[in-house]
Write a protein that binds this DNA or RNA. Structure first.
Lengths: 170, 170
DNA sequence: GAATATTTGTTCATGGTATGTACTTAGGTA
DNA sequence: TACCTAAGTACATACCATGAACAAATATTC
């Protein structure tokens, strides 16, 4: 069906009155399907890692937040993860119970708890980061050098357009 | 920081011994970030629609399954949605309570219930589909004609590569 | 044709994701 | 000191999703 339309479009050579609309219809459907599949594939990946490590997805996400920073606060984590503060409490509790993270009192402000990775947590975090990086490198190695650059710049264009549409949506 | 590395890479002209690895490192990080942002943007969109229609995301997804088909079975929905059968029961219950969907007994097989959209459900489904289509068209209209084709073919390449990596992962 | 197996859908227990409100405690400010 | 704001927690609620156990109907096999 899609092939038929594609052929139609080719033979029409994009010169007819509504061929532009037909083309746009076809392309937007294609775009929708492709994005959906990419998203699905990412969801599969995170779910796979969650099962592999036997750690809930939200906790994994939290674990990956400690990039260079030694300590994070619950509030900071809440902002980076884009979830409510109360959600962070639960996530941290899970990680503390697994001894991946520990919280100490801020010496200057007793309201604040500093959350830091334990050595076990650091190991897991590094391991997880390595797997993710490896996965993306493998993905790039599927491509020719020129394709890599093109795919990345196309994603950049796509992201910018999505942002632009989001803004004008309101 | 990324800009520094990018400049470094340009001046090196990709000829040094490890420049390929450095480039790959840079590109894989970039790829990871871009994909993450695209995924986040999609999640925002579905969450936005769910709030706008006051219908849970899973139910919206289900609503969009009735493309041309008059009736779907719970099993069919389960496969299309890629969720457990028991989940479908809940989703259908929600949609029935909102009078968006109704289930009738299959005349040939008493085990099977045929799920079909009510007229209200058809309206919602069409409305939802129109919004989604409009969104993707707006996105494409942000781009030049040539860019559109390129972004779509790049997404196709990306999807294929993700699939290839997934397969070799096991 | 009766016994057995399979298919369809439901219920229930469980666990993960996420929010918002109310609350406690601690710091800042007037 | 009295008041306000900030940080974190507890709790109620709702949604997402699975798997096991089950009931009813249909298929298969002998």
């Amino acid at each position: 069906m899609a092939a038929i339309i594609a052929n139609m479009l080719n033979t029409m050579n994009n010169r007819e009155t509504d061929s532009i609309d037909v083309l746009l219809d076809y392309q937007s459907q294609k775009l929708q399907d492709l994005i959906e599949e990419v998203v699905r594939c990412c969801k599969e990946r995170t779910s796979f890692l969650s099962k592999k490590f036997d750690i809930p997805e939200a906790e994994l996400r939290c674990l990956m937040l400690f990039g260079e920073e030694r300590y994070l606060t619950a509030k900071g984590i809440s902002q980076k993860l884009e979830v409510a503060k109360s959600r962070v409490t639960k996530i941290i509790n899970g990680l503390v119970q697994k001894s991946l993270v520990e919280s100490i009192d801020d010496p200057k402000d007793a309201r604040i708890k500093l959350i830091g990775l334990t050595s076990k947590g650091q190991k897991k975090s590094r391991e997880l980061g390595d797997i993710t990086k490896d996965l993306h490198q493998k993905l790039l190695l599927e491509l020719e050098s020129e394709q890599r650059k093109m795919v990345i710049s196309c994603l950049e264009i796509l992201r910018a357009s999505m942002e632009a549409v989001k803004v004008q949506m309101v």
